[in-house]
C-alpha cells in the first residue's frame, strides 16, 4: 500500500471523544478523514494537519506517531495522515 493518498473527505471533531481517548490533556479540536490510497481503498485515520488547512482532495502522507508507552514500557505506535509537503 502506498504511503501517499488523497483526502476523500474529513471532519473536525470539536469535542473530546467519549471513552479512553489518548489525545492531549487539554482537548484540541482535530481532524479525522477518509484517505483514498492507490485508487482502490479508503483508510480512516486521524489527520495531523492544522484543521484550517484541511481540504478535500489534498495530498496526504502516512504518518506513524508515538501514541503512548504501555505497561511493559514499550512504545505504542499509532497512525495518522498529514499533509504530503
Amino acid at each position: 500500500m502506498a504511503n501517499d493518498g488523497t483526502l476523500y473527505t474529513y471532519t473536525v471533531v470539536r469535542h473530546r471523544p467519549p471513552g479512553n481517548y489518548r489525545g492531549p490533556d487539554e482537548f484540541e479540536p482535530f481532524g479525522i478523514g477518509l484517505v483514498e490510497v492507490d485508487s482502490v481503498i479508503r483508510v480512516m485515520a486521524p489527520l495531523k494537519s492544522k484543521i484550517e488547512d484541511l481540504k478535500i482532495g489534498m495530498k496526504v502522507r502516512f504518518h506513524p506517531y508515538s501514541l503512548r508507552t504501555n505497561d511493559a514500557g514499550d512504545e505504542v505506535i499509532a497512525f495518522a495522515y498529514a499533509a504530503a509537503d
Binding site: 471532519t11 471523544p17 467519549p18 471513552g19 478523514g33 486521524p46 478535500i56 501514541l67
Partner: peptide, 25 residues
C-alpha cells in the same frame, strides 16, 4: 475497537459528518 477509541475515532457524529462534507463537495 479499543484502538479506534484511543485514536479519537469513536465519536458517532464524525461518520455522518464526513459523508456530509463529501456530499457538499
Amino acid at each position: 475497537s479499543p484502538w479506534q477509541v484511543e485514536l479519537g475515532m469513536s465519536q458517532n457524529p464524525a461518520y455522518w459528518s464526513m459523508r456530509a462534507m463529501r456530499h457538499m463537495h
